[in-house]
Write a protein that binds this DNA or RNA. Structure first.
Length: 809
DNA sequence: CTTACACGGGG
DNA sequence: GGGTACGTGTAAG
């Protein structure tokens, strides 16, 4: 039997452990159970034979190793004789491992920290989201085939399988600002899927006549109906936006209180909370829960999406180019209580959330499925990995295939020591501050990967004893040398990734952009690019298994060498370099025409070794450069890219956010700092003149602990105390909305809760000096303005005319 | 200056 | 599977 491998997990039933594989075939789901899998670790010891005998006799609470054997492996390229210790079940490992560690002669232990389901995929060479072939006894159970395997599964080609992809979203009653899962009910669940489903389930009948609305009796029934719908639509993939952090934890708590069993699993199991660092990822057996936000966030951290905010609305607008209806969360309660037109809007909004999540998810899934193929771990795990983890799991798999032992994750002292090790990073040029027009941006195509491959950078090749000094390239500034005879695990794995990408790029030329084949190949090459670009980061990440400081610093050293050379070449060519960061170069064309950029590119590339190559990133009409890492540019399509200015958050008043946004637009779209300055002056004038609506002055800050526990009494704490004094119940998690009032004393003392603000005067000074000006000054000061030029003060405006001649810009 | 606390996504 | 988020900003003290 063959099918697409969707997911795998590890489970134990009546003390019998097994690995389970979920397969899809022609719309049918198959669960394949494999009781035959290995759980093991490696021991490296001074006298392997003597230690082997001792390990074989270890016993803890009646548990003993299943088997011990001597095997030949390598560690960081060097041959080692290792003791492979196998266990009867994964749960036997922790106690026995500690007992083995304490045996005399034991030097190191490896691969004890690889979870069974992942170990299984690696050892069996299976790739999720690909075909596999299985053999075994079949039992039918509730529409799902269960196969008990009597042979190991093997990779196989299967025709493309259509997956049922569903998204959902919840709306929650939130009278306290932040919803409290112990009190506030879920009022709506919206659903959408790739087969046309559009539904909102709610438990108040607003009689809006919207055909997608289904009314149930109460919240309990709403949750039951949600579970029923997921089963009915038979979702293979269940998506949401920020569901790991919000929706699932909330649903779980409500379900617990209402005594609803969240049996979303294909085997009838409940949603599992898998602890993952600070968050909890929810796992559904047999279905893949994908949090679209984690995918978006991943792309944001690697710089493939750059937005000011990564909320659903903005991400949807950026990725799909469409607007979705907005609904302020502060208005939920009112809409729910009063019904009518607002309830109608809320239902519409709820559906649009599920729909937008579905559309974004459908855009991103192909990429993450390709990452799954590369890394060879489940899409559930891969969609939640950091770039460093992607590389790590790929290397673990590659290491296994070549008999290389996997370094353990660093813990305790080893990790702490790494934190103290620092090394010089990339070269970042101090920008030529101010507004620049007619820009061309160049960047090195995968600079760090190219360096790693070209110079064979790997812990096993560092300062080898087999090469003559004259044969090897020396790392600039350090004098390290890397072997030229044998390939290291890291460069050889990376080289395969890069070569495959080159092949796919060639393949893509055979197809029309936009065609199915083209898009598939594009996702593949993109996933390879992301993976390749993550190798360097991993080398320098203290938590990584393959962390090697000398390798990481060699990469950056070579990087600085290449980019500085390029800057000098650009200057010689006649371009003004306004900024450079790591592998990129921002230059002014100086009226030379865009074709000159191509000539420069060729000149540089002719001078570069190996696979290191400079590329043209794009042309920009205008850009404002503020400091290192802080700039904004606008391209030919009027798209604004902003870097490093993202400090507009909810604990800033709306007036500050709005003014900053308007200033950037004026500067970039219209090229007019004068107009921007006018916007700021008008705003400060409005603030001083009391013409700003209170709405725009509210600052929202969350109470993160009980009010008594605060040692630092910030404004929101004072405002919360004032609320409590008049009988409002105050608890952690509440968002306190306050306004700064005019008067004497610290900012904290003058914080007044919004609901008490009637008849009070706000503090114009605070809003000008601590809100609006800080938000816009970073931009304005590089354009030649001083803060006194931007405050509303008639005398200063006259002075401004002398100080800045904006007419020239 | 150091220390404390909050931001993000979600509602 | 996991003892542990993270990088960065403001205000209080």
């Amino acid at each position: 039997m063959e099918g697409l491998l969707l997911d795998n997990d590890f489970a134990e039933e009546e003390d019998k452990p097994y690995v389970r594989l979920f397969l899809k075939r022609d719309g049918e789901t198959i669960a394949a159970l494999d009781p035959n899998f290995e759980t093991y670790l490696y021991v490296v010891a001074d006298h392997p034979n003597r230690v082997l005998k001792m390990v074989g006799k270890v016993e803890v609470h009646g548990l003993r190793p299943k088997s011990v054997e001597l095997v030949n492996r390598t560690f960081l390229g060097k041959k080692v004789e290792a003791i492979k210790v196998a266990f009867n079940r994964p749960s036997d490992m922790p106690d026995l491992r500690h007992a083995i560690r304490d045996l005399p002669g034991v030097k190191e232990m490896y691969e004890f920290d690889i979870p069974p389901a992942r170990r299984y995929l690696i050892d069996r060479c299976l790739t999720p989201m690909s075909g596999i072939s299985i053999k075994g006894k079949t039992i039918d159970q509730d529409g799902m085939k269960i196969v008990v395997l009597d042979e190991p599964p093997v990779p196989a080609k299967v025709p493309e399988q259509e997956l049922k992809i569903m998204s959902f979203d919840i709306e929650v009653y939130n009278p306290a600002g932040s919803p409290r899962p112990d009190k506030d009910p879920i009022i709506m669940v919206s659903l959408a899927d790739n087969r046309g489903l559009k539904k909102v389930i709610t438990w108040k009948d607003f009689k809006t006549g919207q055909d997608f609305v289904e009314v149930v009796k109460d919240e309990k029934e709403l949750l039951e109906r949600f579970v029923e719908m997921v089963k009915e639509r038979d979702a293979d993939i269940l998506m949401g936006y920020n569901t790991d952090l919000f929706d699932f934890p909330y649903i779980r708590e409500r379900a617990r209180r209402l005594k609803v069993k969240l049996k979303l699993g294909r085997d009838g199991s409940e949603v599992l909370a898998r602890k993952k660092r600070f968050a909890t990822a929810s796992r559904i057996r047999g279905r893949v829960h994908i949090d679209v936000y984690t995918m978006v966030n991943f792309l944001a951290t690697i710089g493939h999406i750059r937005l000011i905010h990564y909320n659903l609305e903005e991400v949807y607008k950026y990725m799909l180019g469409k607007d979705k209806p907005d609904f302020e969360f502060t208005e939920f309660v009112d809409a729910w209580e009063r019904g009518g037109e607002r309830a109608r809007d809320l239902l519409e909004y709820s559906l649009s959330d599920a729909q937008a999540t579905l559309e974004i998810g459908l855009e991103l899934l192909p990429l993450f499925f390709e990452l799954t193929h590369i890394v060879r771990q489940s899409p559930f795990d891969v969609s939640r990995m950091t770039p460093g983890q992607l590389v790590e799991w790929l290397l673990i798999s590659e290491a296994h295939n070549v008999g290389e032992l996997v370094p353990a994750r660093p813990v305790g002292e080893e990790f702490e020591e790494r934190l103290d090790e620092t090394y010089v990073g990339a070269y970042v040029m101090e920008p030529v501050k101010g507004l620049h027009e007619d820009l061309v941006v160049f960047d090195y195509r995968s600079l760090y990967p190219s360096i790693i491959v070209t110079h064979n950078i790997d812990p096993s090749t560092l300062n080898c004893d087999c090469c003559k000094p004259s044969q090897v390239v020396t790392v600039p500034e350090f004098g390290y040398k890397f072997c030229t005879n044998r390939r290291g695990l890291i460069p050889s794995t990376l080289e395969k990734i890069i070569q495959e990408r080159v092949r796919l790029k060639g393949e893509m030329k055979k197809y029309k952009p936009g065609s199915r084949e083209y898009r598939q190949l594009d996702a593949q090459q993109w996933a390879l690019k992301i993976t390749a670009n993550s190798f360097y980061g991993m080398l320098g990440y203290p938590r990584a298994r393959w962390y090697f400081k000398q390798c990481a610093e060699s990469v950056t050293s070579f990087g600085r060498h290449y980019i500085k050379n390029t800057i000098n070449m650009a200057k010689d060519f006649g371009f003004d370099v306004v900024y450079s960061d790591t592998d990129s170069l921002f230059t002014k064309l100086n009226g030379k025409g865009r074709d000159s950029a191509m000539r420069f590119l060729k000149q540089v590339n002719d001078s570069l070794p190996g696979i290191i190559e400079l590329e043209l990133e794009g042309f920009y009409q205008r850009g404002v450069f503020i400091t290192k890492k802080r700039y904004a540019m606008i391209d030919d399509e009027d798209r604004i890219v902003v870097k490093g200015l993202e400090f507009v958050r909810r604990d800033w008043a709306a007036i500050a956010k709005k003014t900053q946004e308007a200033v950037l637009k004026a500067v970039l779209r219209d090229g007019s700092p004068k107009e921007a300055a006018e916007i700021v002056r008008k705003t400060t004038k409005d603030i001083v003149g009391g013409r700003v609506s209170l709405e725009d002055l509210i600052i929202y800050t969350q109470l993160t602990m009980a009010i008594e526990n605060y040692r630092a009494i910030g404004p929101h704490v004072v405002a919360a105390k004032k609320l409590r004094a008049k009988g409002v119940e105050i608890e952690p998690g509440m968002i306190i909305a306050y306004i700064e009032a005019k008067g004497t004393g610290s900012i904290s003392e003058r914080a007044v809760p919004v609901e008490d603000f009637k008849g009070v005067e706000y503090d114009p000074d605070y809003y000008v000096e601590n809100q609006v000006l800080p938000a816009v000054m970073r931009i304005m000061e590089v354009l030649g303005y001083k803060d006194e030029d931007l405050r509303y003060e008639k005398a200063k405006q006259v002075k401004l005319a002398e100080f800045v001649d904006d007419s020239k810009i």
